[in-house]
Structure formats: structure tokens, C-alpha cells
Simulated scan of single mutants.
Amino acid sequence: MTSPSTLAKPKPAASPLARLRSIPHLGLLAVLIAIVIFASVRTDAFLNPNNLINVARQVSVVAVIAAGLTLLMVAGGMDFSMGGNVAVTTAVAAQMLSHGWSTAVTLAVSIALSIAVGLVNGAVVTFTRVAPFVATLATATLLDGVALLVIDGMSISIDDHLSTLGNGKTLGLPNLTFVAALVLAVTAFVMRYTTFGRDAFAIGGNEDVARLSGINVVRDKLLLYGLAGALSGLAGIMLLSRLAASSPGTGGLQLQLTAVAAVVIGGTSLAGGKGTIGGTILGVLLLGVVANVLNLLQISSYYQQISVGAVLLVAAVANLMQSRGKH
């Protein structure tokens, strides 16, 4: 007969504080709520439905880039050329639409081009062992130049092409937001429930061990960079539909840094092996709300760049310290 002393003791109920601490990304969520409250108090325009819709429309493009970047960074990769890929996509699509090409052909060519750029990045990183940061930063510089050549340094209007996507609404929300939500949902599903997603985490954790475990690392890395390219192309089409024109400075490094900052703020490890789409969403929203608040308070746009850089630096340091603390 089993004695009472050998019976498993029930675990004590978690305290409210412990349950609170177990909430994912609690600190980031608290900061976002605090900024929303501050903005609501300082300006009545922030909670205006039109302003909130505008914020949702603006962050949608960054969210799509950030989704692809999250999956890539989880696998230990990095692509600093996604913003440049966006710039080239908008330039090529704008020129094609302005010269009478059909929307379907334009979209197909633009997305195919962006996938090709991603695959080239993946091939360079995978087969030459050049550091992803160096390889993709070089590609980013090249793509920014190509985008300027394609539009000849001028602004190319697409009139009302893609206006349904860029300015249309469904159920009161921007169509761009639904596209971004779908991309984020699919990416989250892939990361959590598919073999490909689990392999990405394994590659990011230790590429050599992943290879020895039977994972086709070369194939998966090429697919990840190709996917990052595809989402860059989609983001480029979304941005073009919102702006209705491609101009010098559309996309590029500033857009890329915002996406990187959002992903890192959201807790994705720079070393790979850790990351969530939920954290990335909060990071995207935080940067989008901060930019909107600075605009509403009529603070110089230069401070927006400063804020993104500062937040990225703080998040990178915190990310590194957290990683060291686990070893």
C-alpha cells in the first residue's frame, strides 16, 4: 500500500505576480500600452478612427517584411537587402504599369524578380560562407542603385492602378492590413506547426548539429532567403499601391532598419534559434505608434530616425545580455 508520504504533492498555485510574469512579451506590451495612454492624453487626434486606420495602413508594409525577417533570423540568417528589394520592386512595377502592362503580368514579374534576388542572397551566403550581414548589405547598396536607374531618379506615377489594394477597405479596415495579417498568420503557423519551421529553429540553434540530424540545411536556407525575397516583393507592391508612385527613396535602408528593429525588439535572437511572430507584431506596432505620435506632436522627423536607431541599439544589447545569461 502506498504511504501518504510517497504520494506526489500537488504543486502550489502560482501567485498572481508569477502568472503576470509568465505573459509573453509583457515588458514590450507594457511599453506599448504606456505610449498609447500618453498619446491619448497629449493629443485627441491619436484615437481618431481615421488616424488609427492610417497607422494600420502604414505598419502593414513593415509587418510583411518583418514576418519574413523573423523566420530568416530564427534560422540564424539575416537579409539587409529586403528594403532595397522593395525599392526595386516598386520601381519595376511602376514602370511596367505606367507603360501599359497588365496588373497581373506586372505582379508576376515583380514577385519573380524579388524571389530571384532572395535566392541570389541565399546562394552567396550558403555556398561562399560570406557573412549574411556583409553579403546582404552589399546587395542592398546594389539594389538601391538599380532602383534609381529603373526610374531614372524621377517619380513614376501609377495613377489608380492598385488603388483597391492600397486605399480600399474591408469591414472598415484597410485591405493592406488584411494582407499583412494573413502573411503574419501563415508565418506563425509555419514556425510553430510545420517541419520546415522546426528545422529553421534547429538550424539557428546549431547549424552543424542540424546537418548531422539529417536536415537539408542548404535547401532550407535557400528556401528561407527565397521566401524573404518573395515577401519583399509583396511589401513593395503594397507600398506602391499605398503611395501610387515610385520615387527616389521609396523603400531602401530606412524601411529595412525599421523592420530589423521591430524584429529584434520583439525578442528574436540575433544569433538564431529563438523568435516569435507575436513579439514581432508588438515590435512593429510599437515603432508605428511612436512614429505616429511624433508626427501628431509635430516633432521633427529627424527624431524618428533617432528613435528607431536608439530602440534598435537598446534591444540588441538587451538581446545579447539575455542570451549570455542563459549560458
Rank of each mutant, 00 (worst) to 15 (best):
G100I: 00
N50K: 15
A123E: 05
G100Y: 00
A63R: 02
V120R: 06
G77R: 01
V120F: 09
T106M: 00
L69Q: 13
V62C: 09
A91R: 00
D79G: 10
V55F: 06
P49R: 14
S98I: 03
A67R: 05
T90W: 01
S60P: 11
G84T: 06
S98C: 04
I65A: 12
V64R: 08
H99E: 14
F80N: 11
A116G: 15
M82E: 14
G118C: 06
L97R: 01
A87F: 04
V59I: 15
S98K: 02
L52E: 13
V120Q: 05
W101F: 14
G77Y: 02
G76N: 02
N121H: 09
V62M: 08
V105N: 11
L107W: 05
V125G: 04
G77V: 03
V117H: 04
L97G: 01
S81H: 13
A116L: 14
V124N: 04
S114T: 10
L71E: 09
N85S: 13
V74Q: 01
V64Q: 06
G100F: 00
F127C: 14
A66M: 03
V86I: 13
V62S: 09
A123K: 01
V117A: 05
T103G: 07
G118A: 12
A75L: 02
V62F: 03
A116V: 14
Q95G: 04
S110F: 01
